[in-house]
Structure formats: structure tokens, C-alpha cells
Computed example of a mutant assay.
Amino acid sequence: MQALPDFSAFGGVPAHAIRAHGVRAHAIRAITIDLDDTLWPIWPTIERAERVLLEWLHVHAPATAQSLQTAEAVRAVRNEIGSLRPDLAHDLNGLRRESIRLALTRAGDDHTLAEAAFDTFFAERQRVELFEDALPALEFLSSRWPVVALSNGTADVHVVGLGRFFHASVSAHRVGFAKPDARIFALAAEAAGVPADSVLHIGDDAMLDVKGAMDAGMHAAWLNRAGVDWPHEGVTPHATVASLAQLCQGLAQG
């Protein structure tokens, strides 16, 4: 078993912050972890990918590029596809691809360019910039437990370059339902090979990650980097931490 990575640069956390509601490292047999806004900030990634897509469209489908110059225009097409294709509600890749196809068709460009345009967007979407504490946290967690990626997004941990840390990956667009649906948490526990009550789920979203995991019978750690108030009455996260580094320090002390 590897030693705890040096988290000193990220600040400490008292052990009771992790233990306050009953999480003990010895009771945990697997970790599930969210990706977007947990391991990396998602909106800078999406904004960059959309810029790259627009540059591609300027070359290959200029009329479509002209129609998608503003964020409002992009969002309007996306919302329209969401209404027209409820079957894609949990498939962000499908929504993006069909939004591009609709924009191409409306602008009079070749709609068959949608696949190549989406591939351009998707490749850039996989270029993420990790939070500073993400890599040492993954090293710590994966040296002690099987770690399963559990995401509503479309990042591929192998393409991103983090596949070595993960035992498995469960994504909403592949299984057909999304967090906070208890079924996706159950699939993640199954992928880890342990009961749900032996899993600690880590994520940034109070509803999708934390309440969803607890409703599914898991332990849950709320990664609250912004220091906002917990929004749900009647239920409290098993742990609330300001960083992944703090979470790992607390688990090491547990």
C-alpha cells in the first residue's frame, strides 16, 4: 500500500470532519467519484471545445458558423433538440450531435457534416485541466480501494489520461439514466463488486451526487470547493470537504 501523498500544500482537515456522520475508512470497500467539477472544472473545457467547433464550422460550414456566433444561439438549438428528442435526455453526446445536425440543416449546409463536427468538439472536450489536488487524490484512493468513475457527462477517463486509476466507469449516456437515479449508483456499486452501503461516493453536486448517493444507500462526501451552504433539509452529507486533499487526509486518519 502506497504512502499518503503530500497534501500539505492544500491545507489540513481535522479527522472529525470526515467522521462526523459515521464514515470510517475501514467501512469503505470501494469509491465512486464524479468527474466534471470534481476532478476538473467543466465550463472552461466546454467553452474551449465550443470555440474549436465554431472554428471548424467556419471552414467547413460557414453558414452554420454564422448562425451559431452567440452562446444564446447555441443554447436555443440545444434546447430545441432537447424538446424534440426526449429520448436523448441522458445522452449529452447525442444531444450535441443532433444539435449540430439541426443547425447545419437550417443553415443550408451539408447535414452529414454533423459527425465530423461532433468529433472535433468531442476531441477537444476530452482535454481537461485537473484541479491541483485531483491527481494525488486519485493516487491515494486507487491505492486503497477500487475506484469507479460515475458521471452524467461524456468524459472518457481513458482518453483523458486517467484510466490507470479506475477499476471501471459508469456513464449516463451509456446506461440510459443519470444521477440522481438510484439505478446508476447501483450499477456503479455492482461494477466495483461491493454492496452499495460499502461505497463512498464523492462529488460536487449536492443533489445529483450527494443526495442521490445517500438515497441509493451509499456513503457520500460533498466536495464543496466554493464553501456554499448545504441546500437540502432533513439530510446531511456524511462528509463535507473543501478539497479532495482534505478528504484523503481525513480518510487516512480514519
Results as ranks from 00 to 15, higher is better:
Asp110Asn: 15
Asp91Pro: 03
Arg225Cys: 07
His238Phe: 01
Leu141Ile: 04
Glu233Ala: 08
Ala221Phe: 02
Ala65Phe: 01
Gln126Ile: 02
Asp205Pro: 01
Val59Lys: 13
Leu150Arg: 09
Thr112His: 15
Glu98Gln: 15
Val199Lys: 08
Leu130Trp: 05
Asn79Gln: 15
Asn79Met: 12
Ala61Glu: 05
Ala107Arg: 01
Thr45Asn: 15
Pro41Gly: 11
Ala123Tyr: 10
Ser151Met: 06
Arg29Gln: 10
Ala192Leu: 11
Asp87Leu: 03
Asp209Met: 03
Phe7Glu: 00
His201Ile: 02
Arg127Gln: 10
Gln126Ala: 02
Pro180Tyr: 00
Gln253Ser: 11
Glu139Ser: 09
Arg127Phe: 03
Ala242Thr: 12
Val157Trp: 04
Ala196Thr: 11
Gln246Leu: 05
Arg78Ser: 13
Thr70Tyr: 14
Val59Asp: 07
Gly82Leu: 03
Ala116Gly: 14
Leu200Tyr: 09
Ala71Gln: 10
Leu138His: 11
Arg106Asp: 03
Ile184Gly: 02
Arg75Gly: 00
Phe118Ala: 06
Ala89Leu: 04
Ser8Phe: 12
Phe7Asn: 05
Ala103Trp: 05
Val59Cys: 06
Val170Gly: 07
Leu251Gly: 14
His16Asn: 11
Met1Cys: 15
His232Asn: 06
Arg106Trp: 08
Val59Gln: 11
Val170Thr: 05
His58Ser: 06
His60Pro: 04
Ala117Ser: 09
Gly217Cys: 09
Ala178His: 01
Ala245Leu: 10
Ala30Ser: 13
Ala189Gly: 02
Asp197Val: 10
Ala30Tyr: 04
Glu190Thr: 13
Arg78Gly: 06
Gly212Met: 01
Glu129Arg: 12
Leu54Pro: 00
Leu208Ser: 10
Leu138Gln: 12
Pro86Thr: 11
His60Ile: 00
His167Leu: 04
Ala20Phe: 09
Gly11Ser: 12
Val241Asp: 07
His58Thr: 09
Arg101Glu: 13
Phe177Ala: 04
Leu130Asp: 03
Ser151Leu: 10
Ala186Trp: 00
His26Ala: 15
Thr240Asn: 14
Gly254Thr: 15
Ala20Tyr: 08
Ser198Ile: 00
Val52Ala: 06
His232Asp: 00
Asp197Gln: 14
Asp133Glu: 10
Pro44Met: 09
Asp181Pro: 08
Asp133Tyr: 03
Ser99Asp: 02
Ala188Ser: 04
His173Leu: 02
Leu92Ile: 15
Asp34Tyr: 08
Ala25Glu: 09
Val194Lys: 09
Val170Pro: 13
Leu57Trp: 07
Phe177Val: 06
Gly11Val: 05
Ala61Val: 02
Gly193Lys: 02
Glu132Phe: 07
Arg164Gly: 13
Ser171Cys: 14
Phe7Val: 05
Phe166Gly: 06
Ala65Arg: 11
Leu187Pro: 02
Leu150Phe: 12
Ala73Cys: 07
